[in-house]
Design a protein around this nucleic acid. Sequence first.
DNA 1: AGTGGATGTGTAAGCGCTTACATCAGTGTG
DNA 2: CACACTGATGTAAGCGCTTACACATCCACT
Lengths: 346, 346
Amino acid sequence: MGLTIYDIASKAGVSIATVSRVFNGSDRVSPATRDMVLSVADELGYQPHASARSLARRRTDVVSAVIPMISNYFFAEVLRGLQDRMAETEFDLLVFSARSLDEMAIQLDRALHRGRSAGVLVFSAPIAGELEALVGKASQPVVLVDGYHPAIDSISSDNRKGGTLAAEHFAQGGVRRPGVLMANRESVPASDRLAGFEARLRLHGIPLDPSLVIENSHPLNDGYNEQGGYAGMKALLSAPNPPDAVFATSDAQAVGALEALKESGRMVGSDIHLVGYDDLPIARYVGLTTLRQPMNDIGGRAFELLMNRMSGTANGTVHTVFSPTLIQRQSTRALAEGTVGEGIAL
Amino acid sequence: MGLTIYDIASKAGVSIATVSRVFNGSDRVSPATRDMVLSVADELGYQPHASARSLARRRTDVVSAVIPMISNYFFAEVLRGLQDRMAETEFDLLVFSARSLDEMAIQLDRALHRGRSAGVLVFSAPIAGELEALVGKASQPVVLVDGYHPAIDSISSDNRKGGTLAAEHFAQGGVRRPGVLMANRESVPASDRLAGFEARLRLHGIPLDPSLVIENSHPLNDGYNEQGGYAGMKALLSAPNPPDAVFATSDAQAVGALEALKESGRMVGSDIHLVGYDDLPIARYVGLTTLRQPMNDIGGRAFELLMNRMSGTANGTVHTVFSPTLIQRQSTRALAEGTVGEGIAL
DNA sequence: AGTGGATGTGTAAGCGCTTACATCAGTGTG
DNA sequence: CACACTGATGTAAGCGCTTACACATCCACT
């Protein structure tokens, strides 16, 4: 770089303080001086040095996002909503991605303690143990995205509600023996989805056989993947008394399950039913009934929440919850009386 | 924060210089002192302040990634490969995402001139005009990912080769009247894919009717999306003399095209053939023949290249090129003699 | 004319760190 | 036993910026 406030100041014939003021929104600089400084800066192509600035100000205009598994579609969509909102500001985004829940703590620690950012967005992590301790003594605001903790601002989709909707759909359609393809049990969203599902089934007096709840646990990821769904469905199908409808905690798992189902020769949507979660683009193409969440809005809202915290505007913990919607398609065709889904034939 | 090098120094009974030395890889500090400083720092939970550090050092350990459209699967995968490699270092990642090619220049300018990062990765952008000027006078190294410019380090997938492979597949299968679903023409990867495709057809003496090359142009995105593929295929089908095989410059477009095909009642894989690009997870499930690129490797290699540049190790421009592979599936079933794809029935 | 309050600008002291240079033991030489 | 060395450590001068405070005008007012 090599272009500092001193260069601008001397070229414009003012002091560095004045230049600094010009670059920090009108303090009290005369319009004439301001214009002159700006034109000199413009001509030379000056841009204030971000590190020096944040050191002097004792704050940065950077926010960090701590994310498990960056190639996940959900995060990508949420990040996009986030960046759209951020583009309107001076803020930049630091991304810390983790491959596992354990690694989340390491990444959060990095994000929190290096003075690099002014606020942190933590995605989809259960705030307990080490993470809770870190957030607790954090000196910068933290907003939970797709997670919940009573004492921390959060923005999430109502995962219990999603489970409830799935169970209700099953109950209305006359399902007798439901099964579940669960992601990693440590994953908060998955547990909540399961909890909502179980509770609603109970309400309808439909038993959920624990042996029909298959967890996809893997130390290195959170379990929302196709392989897990495939293997889980295989297991369900070979149970002594297989389920007549299955709720998968993600579309990725459901897509894998669909393949296992295809191999087994089952007719999905009549012999057996399947509901996924997320409404990925693929869900539409394979005719999968699923729960949709407003991912872009979640990202945008998350940034707003964080901004409020950073500026000290906020008071009291805020929990924003978006509700998922059930999108009915072919994979539960027979559950909806006469309704025909939009998916392709299975 | 409020925990500085002074706190550690006084608690450990040494000077700040010593503490600093300890935190900067062994300069020349006695092992005893080092251990003592480290244990004090550890106990207090000290982490050096990133801004102060980079101001004093006159460099940062942050790299920027300038990316068009963050929710695109390709970028997500490449970023993941990138972060895996970065996790082993002290580097952090700043993400600048742009919604259009125009916005790329704005974001690159931000990335380049705020002294926030030590190197920049520019994704999938044609380096010409404003972008070329920016990169040209950049004071930090730039590596092009999925792009090319003679004077700038780059790492990419051989898009021409992908087009060539598709054309070869068509030619071998006896295609007579090929069509193309093109993304935005400004997109370098798409143009290269088309160029390779055209050249190979020419080699085989197969004419490519320009009216059968449909561009999906939209000012706000680069055209790799389902809607564009859908609309483009509609147009191709209603041409006076429709194509018997179509090459789409992305799987997203191909998936949209598949839907248009389904609506028209065509049998994909026999009446008409379709080849996509990227090998997204969905390609497998809809039985789409496509070109696969090693996205994770691209990300990792990109970071290595940038590291070399930043450390001044590199000399001479380096262009690394990965080759795509054709994955044959149902959507071109009849083109491969007797070969049966792995996709689901269309 | 003298005073006080705006208003615009400059001076200088940091922000938390790195690093050239100085300092101060120890050690081995002649 | 004075000598130059060789570490190990300390001192202090920045890195480029922000900002409290001081200062200088200028303009009402009394």
